[in-house]
Amino acid sequence: MPTFLDSIRTALALIASGDPDLVEIVLLSLRVSLTAVVAAAAIGVPLGAALAVFRFPGRGALVVLVNALMGLPPVVVGLVVYLSLSASGPLGVLGLLYTPAAMIIAQTILVAPIIAALTRAALAEMLTEYDETLRALGANRIDTLGTLLWDARFALVTALLAGLGRALAEVGAVMLVGGNIDHVTRVMTTAIALETSRGALPLALGLGFVLLMLTLVLNAAVLGLRARLEGPAHA
């Protein structure tokens, strides 16, 4: 059994070597997951904001549904996307199966509910604080929504990071719809799964550490940016 120290050493050696295959896999992981998070934010932020601010019939049920969808098993999402994009499926003509686009679609579906639910929670909490003040200042619901989105921007960044974490860590869906094709759809997680199935556990774990470092760097970068925007002291 490999020790964690071995794996960290493997990870560092992998990074130091600048192995082009590893670079390719890391870049594809980033491209797929970042694109998915952007797409999911385009869906999830307005949806979550609407759920927080507007009152309409079925809203409660929708909130429950969005929260429940946060727990979607990636494999189920992968299966649904696979069956949709399959040549025999309704969207087969698009020819997207086994491409990065298919992986982006699957991860978008996985991440959008997370971003929507976290956005809703953050805005709903802020709304209880802000509502009366904003109404007193003459805000209508659209004004309120805009104000909350801006003032909750750091909570939204956290929501996006949570979504990115889920996207980067997810393997079940991208394996099914991407096919883990070498140089085409192989990402960090599917590479880890492959190395595990080859019994190359130190390499698999080493790749896991590379993934962990990648998420660490991304989080640190975003939080550092946040600290800079927020100013020297705490609000």
């Binding site: 604080e129 802000y130 009366e132 003040t133 007193a136 104000t147 003032d151 609000a235």
Partner: peptide
């Protein structure tokens, strides 16, 4: 209000 809410 008694405890005014200031925007962030």
């Amino acid at each position: 209000f008694q405890s005014p809410v200031l925007l962030r």
